[in-house]
Simulated scan of single mutants.
Amino acid sequence: MKLWLLPIVALSLVACTGNNGDKALTNYQQRLARVFDTPLPNGDLAAPAPLLAERDLKQALPDLRIDLTDAYASRRCGLDTLIGERNSSLGKVYSASKQLSYELRFLQQLAQCLQQRWDSDELLAQLQQVYQQKQLSIDIAFNNMLLTDDTLRKELLGIRKTLPLKDAPGYSETWQALSELTRLQQLIAEQNWHAASQIDIEQQLQRLYQFNFVGRLQYSLRLSQHQLAQLNAMLEQHNSTTLCPGGRDSEQLQILANIFGKYFIPEVQLYTVELSRYQQQLWPLLQQLYQHTPLITPLQQRFEQHYDGMRTELSHHVTWWQNLNRQCPLALNATVKGP
């Protein structure tokens, strides 16, 4: 989507409307409303698609008990330390992420154990059975982390705070954290327990918690779509017939041209381009993580649908300016690009 005019201002020049994108959109909205002597658009932002409650998503892990009458077996494999850890007071209240880390370390240790020579076929068979059962339950542990971890739930539920106009802090850290979690997902699918157990899950969650970038992104997409839709509804009441009858210039048109060049180009457009960049990089990672979970549909609505809605509203908005520029003596000099 392009409105071909000629360059007017450097896109890097951002007017002083506050750092966050919603402030830029609100300021732009207010200025246009004053020009048209029109009440500001109103209407509450619709609630996002609801997520299932944590209690409806968590699954119980199979209660596996290793009944090794010969303590030699557990000591030889190093399982006695892990079993003791799980049975400790802290181990009994592990979070979903710590539980997953424990399960991965247990599988890695048990895989090494099974490569040793065993004189007792009975003990070997018992260990092999535990290994098979643990492999079958690891997906439950991973999904429990995805669906019930406090940090991830906060990201998925969102936060009522938009991202900055540009260069939002935490983007690279968020991308790295999500990339590591998707790599963990792949390693589990490959049953590469050694590599999977080396990933520091808590570190990735801490990166997400620190910036809450994903939660802010989804709110920014929703609010941008909403504000642009309000703007478009207001602008639909005005066209070249009322703004420049007979193609005549006016002070109102000059003010509109100034608002377009000073606030739409370096702020609103820049903001939507930044949101698009974040969405195109982060959503595929979220989609990969949650594609086989009960949350994929509401997440698609929260991210994909609002992103597409923002793009559609922006396209309609640019079309209004294009039509006005062709039919009225606005003489806009800029290149407008959609997200």
Rank of each mutant, 00 (worst) to 15 (best):
M1T: 06
W4K: 07
A10N: 11
A10K: 00
L13A: 08
A15R: 00
K23W: 13
P39N: 13
L64N: 09
D67C: 02
L68R: 02
T69P: 10
G78D: 14
R86N: 15
S88D: 12
S89P: 08
V93E: 10
A96I: 08
S101H: 08
S101W: 05
L104A: 06
Q109Y: 10
L114Q: 12
L114S: 13
S120I: 15
E122Q: 10
E122V: 12
L124G: 15
Q133Y: 11
S137G: 03
I140T: 12
M145F: 11
L146T: 07
L146E: 14
R153M: 05
L156N: 00
L163S: 14
T174Q: 11
A177N: 10
E180H: 14
L184F: 03
W193R: 04
R207Q: 13
Y209Q: 07
F211I: 07
Q227C: 13
Q230T: 03
M234F: 01
G246I: 14
D249G: 15
G261P: 12
I265D: 01
L282W: 00
P284L: 15
L286H: 10
Q287D: 13
L289V: 04
P298C: 14
L299F: 02
F303E: 12
L314T: 10
V318F: 04
T319D: 09
Q322N: 07
N325D: 08
A334P: 08
K337G: 03
K337V: 03
